[in-house]
Simulated assay, not measured.
Amino acid sequence: MLIVMSGLPGAGKSSIAQELGRLPPAPVLSVDPVEAAMWRAGIGRGQPTGPAAYVVVEALASDVLALGQTVIVDAVNDAREQWRGLARRRSVVLRHIEVTCSDHALHRRRLEGRRRDIDGFAEPTWASVEARRANFGSWREDLLVLDSAAPLTGNVRIAMAHLRDTRGDPSPSPSE
């Protein structure tokens, strides 16, 4: 299964993705550290490193899927067709989980207070997140929307139930 996490920066998608990755377990491939690695390798910031990072993560996800394993992609996700195409090519189920934060003050505090320690990667500003929000659209396919203003454990439980239902997996949830 290809699980694609999306949402605005600071919405909480990486926290949920990391917890989901611990449960099956499944590798979590994040676009931001890949882009930062390109910069550290000497590729200029004026180059299209954002789109290139998506291509690198797609190649890595394809290899994981070829092994018959589930993979989680963690990105803002402006590349919906890219993930649809990968799922088709690998003949896997694609599931999209969008993470929002209904409490804008909480979202802003999280964004401005986070320190991900991605060498060379500057955290986005609240103004850039607000600008991006205006153009952020939802997917057409099966979509689970989680509100990160709710507790992390509850969101992970909801996501796992959704993914289990998708696979038809009768295994118990982590809390059972």
Rank of each mutant, 00 (worst) to 15 (best):
V4C: 05
M5H: 06
S6R: 15
P9N: 08
G12H: 01
K13A: 05
S14M: 03
S15Y: 08
I16A: 02
A17P: 01
Q18E: 15
E19W: 11
E19Q: 15
L20V: 09
L20A: 09
G21T: 02
L23W: 10
P24K: 13
V28W: 02
V28N: 02
S30R: 12
D32L: 00
P33Y: 07
P33I: 04
P33F: 06
V34P: 00
E35R: 15
A36M: 04
A36T: 06
A36F: 08
M38W: 09
A41F: 11
G46M: 04
Q47R: 11
Q47F: 12
Q47M: 11
Q47C: 11
T49V: 08
G50S: 04
A52C: 11
A52K: 07
A52L: 15
A52N: 08
A53Q: 01
L60V: 14
G68M: 05
G68N: 06
G68H: 05
T70V: 06
I72F: 01
I72Y: 02
D74K: 02
A75Y: 00
V76N: 05
N77Y: 05
R80S: 10
E81W: 09
E81R: 13
W83I: 01
L86D: 06
A87W: 03
A87N: 07
R88W: 10
R89I: 07
R90P: 01
L94P: 00
E98M: 10
T100M: 15
D103W: 07
D103A: 04
L106Q: 08
H107C: 05
H107A: 03
R108G: 01
R109A: 14
R110S: 05
L111N: 01
L111H: 00
R114P: 02
R116N: 06
D117W: 07
I118G: 03
G120C: 04
G120T: 06
F121C: 08
A122P: 09
E123L: 09
P124Q: 07
A127Y: 05
A127C: 08
A127T: 11
A127G: 11
V129A: 03
A131D: 09
R132N: 10
R132C: 08
R132V: 07
R133Q: 14
A134K: 13
N135K: 15
F136S: 05
S138L: 14
S138M: 12
S138N: 12
R140H: 13
E141T: 07
D142H: 06
D142Q: 05
L146V: 10
D147N: 03
S148T: 04
A149S: 15
L152C: 05
L152E: 07
L152W: 06
T153V: 13
T153W: 13
N155H: 01
V156F: 02
R157C: 09
I158D: 12
A159R: 03
M160K: 03
M160H: 03
M160I: 11
A161P: 00
A161F: 05
H162T: 02
H162N: 03
R164E: 10
D165H: 11
D165R: 13
G168C: 01
G168T: 01
D169A: 05
D169G: 04
S171A: 12
S171G: 09
S171K: 07
P172L: 13
P172F: 10
S173P: 12
S173W: 14
S175Q: 12
S175K: 11
